[in-house]
Design a protein around this nucleic acid. Structure first.
Length: 930
RNA sequence: GCGCGAUUAGCUCAGCGGUAGAGCGCCUGCCUUACAAGCAGGAUGUCGCUGGUUCGAACCCGGCAUCGCGCACCA
């Protein structure tokens, strides 16, 4: 690319798609497991195929891609593996909704046709998502793309289920589960959300069987009284002590139920009597177990009342509630109704209250697995970043309940269990025997070994469990199923397991992180003897959520999501990525992305776009000034030829190189982004380029010295820019790739993405020089400020005088005279010692002080006296304020006595300087007055 | 109820023991041949409140307040 061909503003659209295409077709991110380099691997959290990606995914993507691109530059053998998740319940909900709109039910289609539709949906949604990920510039290996329901992942699920079952970690049984009537399936505890709702507390009287009165109970769910099998009181409650053991007659039903004593009951709450419905409430279930109470289920799986509900049979649970209350009132059992605000469990997906329902389901026995994970955590395995999330993880793994993994859904992994239905008259019942196997023939073999081969008239008949597995069961295998497990010899698995880091939001620590570690504990710990860790990732980097301008979590369901593509089209993928990463700071907090919904604009992303444009123009400047040369053809600058500004920026470059690498390495991504932004914009563009301009353009008939210096300036500019582009590449991959090619002239088949991280030039680091240069910058700023105060036109030259008694500073200014002239439009630059300045006293001049330096602009006749005085007054006030503070501190004997000597010394030095400043300002003011 | 986080400039957020910072916004002046998506200059804060530790606290410790989140949950 030539300088002339470069437009003045950066247009991301074409550039980004071109490099995305080039990277992918060249296989740049398709690693070879046998290639050299320390392995570094990440499996991406697979997005659900429920439509399209939102800003949260873009955020996650930006973070992961920054990390893996950095590691690639560091020479690691990097695998970043993409994929999507089948999201069993979510997708099925979507599809059923679609069917409903067409007046159909999934049963009308049948399982096979329904699954066909689901796969069609997957193809469409998955395609959209993959397109979005590509558009972000994700440097993943698309050739290894996976889907949780693909053949490999499915084989892994079957194997995992079998092994866990063999280990006794999976069992089937009848328990109270969270039943979602909307989706007609059991869900896990994690898929239940407690919501505060305004309800009622109904107080009912239950008559004692003896006829000697009543007990009063209160409930938020009157319909469940039909299934009551006891009333409980606290054993220490003297009011009811003698009633324990007696019985009541359950109203409407007429059943005789006992009064039991149980610690769970809070005597202080309400009347101290609790109706007990073991088949419809988890606490009551526990009470029922302790007291051997019968379980009476009064509700069907669709949320309606069943036969056991007698006259209420067929009513929906909420209709039944009203009907039961009415009946109770009619019979005189209703005491009162109070408004009552309480928590109700809702199904995450179905958006309806879940029903605790007795049901036969498959479970994972979690405690042994959780214990193993807790133990590993003692050794910081995995290591959470920020560390505080490890406590959240550990707490959840403590007192964990068994995990219900079966779902009455079609879309998902069908449970690899076969019922021997010939033993139970051809139907699957709760007592039908079953075998767990890898496939039907293995199941048959297993069944035959137990039940015999059957007879011709009564053959052994198997039927696979119709239910599917919880999606998170397969997601839990993701870090190893994607690498080839259960094939123990899989090259990818051998090379890249355990993965290096898992990057995900704190909202799925339980869903995913903990499930993955538990699954790995059961399935990968066999490798323990080999010395390879089984925990599926070394680090877990937890990030926050993207929130909208009103601080709400961005989500599709809330309708406040922002389509990342909208911002990408407007500002470019790099700008969006940079904006997202730059907002990340500190300890995994949420980030707020400002966004104007009316205009679809974002000031934050726009600022990043402007930064991209700044880099574009800096490179454009270089191309116009390197005389057609490249960094390689120019070569490294000769250290002996370097000027002050050269040595400064090279020192800064080396420091930024080191800092940036450290920040990328330690997940300080936001800091890395901010640091590079400041370095590039302020130090490279505002100072270095401005300082180099003069030397890059030596004018007509330049001297040999000027030509040599031009070459040095070109070398410095080329080196700084090229290195900066590498450091920025993880954050702005497309732009940096484009500019790097422009700068280096490398052919398309070579990629910045695969270059080595620039070696740290330790010799260039120079603290003293950087401090000195900061003084020079300050001096120039003071001059510019004085000019602005005086109202000088920018183009108008003015003489500049510096006064300082510090020889070293004087020498620095002397050396930089040409630079100062260029950057301050100085007519002349003179450096005086205080004695010489004394002789020149009385001249009309603008004066300013900075540190031990006095800056004078003697511009007779042009001076606005008031402005001049104002400036000096300001300087004086500032110095006096500082003097007051420092003097007070030093006057405190405790300070001198207890503070570290270097702090005291610094304080004294600062005081002396402030006093000198104040003195200078006073004398100048006096001069003006006279 | 238990736990976690936040509270700093108009906005979004850094800073986490030694005299308060950035970006955006705002004010002033500039189309200076890299960039007006820009350049130069400037203003802006009892660092939530309250005790304590310390020579010294935005920073450490105790309490309180407000907001947010997670877990648990009493019918």
């Amino acid at each position: 690319m030539s300088a002339e061909a470069l437009p003045k503003t950066y247009d991301p659209a074409g550039t980004e798609s071109r490099w995305q295409h080039a990277w992918e077709t060249s296989g740049a991110f398709h690693p070879d497991p046998s290639a050299p380099g320390e392995p570094f691997s990440v499996v991406i959290p697979p997005p659900n195929v429920t439509g399209s990606l939102h800003m949260g995914h873009a955020f996650n993507t930006a973070l992961i891609d920054t990390i893996v691109r950095f590691q690639r530059l560091r020479g690691k053998n990097v695998l970043c593996l993409p994929g999507t998740d089948h999201a069993s319940i979510a997708v099925q909900t979507i599809l059923e909704k679609q069917l409903k709109a067409e007046g159909q039910r999934k049963e009308d289609l049948g399982r096979e046709a329904f699954l066909e539709k689901a796969w069609e949906w997957k193809a469409q949604s998955g395609g959209t998502i993959v397109g979005q990920l590509r558009r972000l510039g994700y440097s993943v290996d698309w050739r290894r793309e996976r889907f949780t329901l693909d053949a490999g992942c499915s084989a892994a699920v079957i194997e995992a289920f079998n092994r866990l079952h063999e280990q006794g970690l999976i069992y089937r049984g009848e328990y109270l589960v969270n039943w979602c009537p909307a989706s007609g399936s059991a869900v896990s505890d994690l898929e239940v959300e407690m919501k505060e709702v305004d309800g009622h507390l109904w107080h009912f009287r239950y008559p004692l069987s003896s006829g000697a009165g009543f007990l009063e109970v209160a409930t938020t769910r009157p319909e469940t009284l039909l299934g009551d099998t006891a009333v409980a009181v606290n054993p220490k409650d003297s009011r009811y002590a003698e009633l324990v053991g007696q019985t009541l007659t359950l109203p409407l039903v007429g059943r005789t139920i006992p009064i039991v004593a149980d610690d769970h009951v809070d005597a202080e709450f309400g009347t101290g009597c609790v109706k007990v419905t073991p088949a419809h409430d988890p606490n009551d279930f526990a009470i029922g177990q302790r007291h051997n109470l019968p379980l009476i289920t009064v509700m069907a799986k669709d949320g309606s009342m069943n036969e056991a509900a007698g006259p209420f049979h067929g009513l929906d649970r909420f209709e039944a509630r009203q009907a039961v209350v009415a009946a109770m009132e009619a019979e005189g059992f209703l005491v009162k109704v109070e408004p009552y605000r309480h928590s109700v469990p809702f199904s995450d997906r179905g958006k309806v209250p879940v029903e605790p329902l007795l049901s036969t389901q498959w479970f994972v026995k979690t405690e042994p697995l959780a214990a193993r994970c807790r133990e590993a955590l003692e050794n910081f395995d995995p290591r959470f970043v920020p560390e505080r999330w490890s406590k959240v993880y550990r707490d959840w793994l403590t007192d964990i309940r068994d995990w219900c993994i079966s779902r009455q859904l079609w879309w998902g992994h069908r449970i690899p269990a076969w019922f021997v239905v010939s033993e139970t008259g051809g139907a699957i019942t709760d007592t039908t025997p079953y075998v767990v196997a890898r496939d039907e023939s293995e199941a048959m073999a297993k069944a035959e070994s137990i039940y015999g081969t059957g007879t011709h008239a009564h053959p052994l008949v198997l039927e696979q469990d119709p239910d599917a597995l919880d999606t998170w069961f397969s997601s839990g295998l993701w870090p190893f199923s994607t690498l080839g497990w259960p094939d123990a010899d899989a090259a990818d698995l051998a090379r890249w397991y355990p993965t290096s880091v898992l990057v995900t939001g704190f909202d799925i620590i339980f869903f995913w992180v903990a499930r993955m570690t538990m699954m790995a504990g059961a399935l990968m710990s066999a490798r323990e003897g080999s010395g390879i860790p089984w925990i599926p990732f070394r680090d877990v980097y937890i990030h926050g959520l993207v929130r909208d301008e009103q601080n709400r979590k961005m989500s599709k369901s809330a309708g406040n999501g922002i389509d990342p593509l909208l911002l990408i089209e407007r500002y470019g993928a790099d700008a969006l990525r940079f904006a997202l990463v730059r907002e990340v700071a500190g300890a995994g907090q949420d980030i707020r992305l400002d966004y104007d919904r009316k205009s679809d604009t974002s000031a934050t992303v726009e600022a990043s776009r402007n930064f991209a444009n700044k880099l574009w123009n800096a490179t454009r400047f270089a191309l116009m000034n390197l005389g057609g040369q490249t960094p390689a053809s120019l070569g490294e600058p000769d250290p002996a030829a370097l000027q002050l500004a050269d040595r400064w920026i090279l020192s800064r470059l080396a420091r930024v190189n080191r800092e940036t690498a450290e920040r990328y390495e330690s997940y300080g991504l936001g800091e890395a982004a901010k640091g590079l932004y400041e370095f590039a914009w302020n130090e490279v563009c505002d100072w270095t380029i401005e300082l180099l301009k003069r030397r890059l353009n030596p004018g007509d008939n330049p001297s040999p010295e000027a030509l040599a210096d031009q070459r040095t300036a070109r070398q410095v500019l080329a080196k700084v820019l090229q290195e900066l582009l590498v450091l920025l590449h993880p954050l702005m991959p497309h732009l940096s790739e484009e500019l790097w090619h422009g700068l280096t002239g490398e052919p398309e088949g070579t990629f910045l993405a695969l270059q080595p991280w620039p070696a740290l030039d330790g010799a260039a680091l120079n603290d003293g020089l950087e401090a000195q240069f900061a003084e020079l910058i300050e001096a120039i700023r003071v001059v510019r400020n004085l000019r602005a105060v005086a109202g000088l036109k920018p183009a108008q030259p003015a003489p500049v005088q510096f006064v300082t008694g510090r020889g070293e500073l004087a020498q620095l200014l002397q050396e930089a005279t040409a630079d100062i002239t260029a950057l301050t439009r100085a007519e002349s630059v003179v450096v005086l010692d205080p004695a010489a300045a004394e002789a020149a006293r009385g001249q009309r001049a603008l004066a300013g002080v900075c540190g031990e330096l006095q800056v004078l602009l003697p511009i007779e006749g042009l001076v606005d006296l008031d402005a001049l005085k104002g400036r000096l007054d300001k300087d004086l006030a500032k110095a006096e304020k500082e003097i007051a503070g420092l003097a007070a501190r030093l006057a405190n004997p405790n300070f001198a006595g207890k503070a570290p000597p270097e702090v005291v010394a610094e304080c004294q030095a600062n005081l002396a300087e402030a006093q000198a400043q104040a003195e200078l300002a006073r004398r100048r003011l006096a001069d003006l007055g006279g």
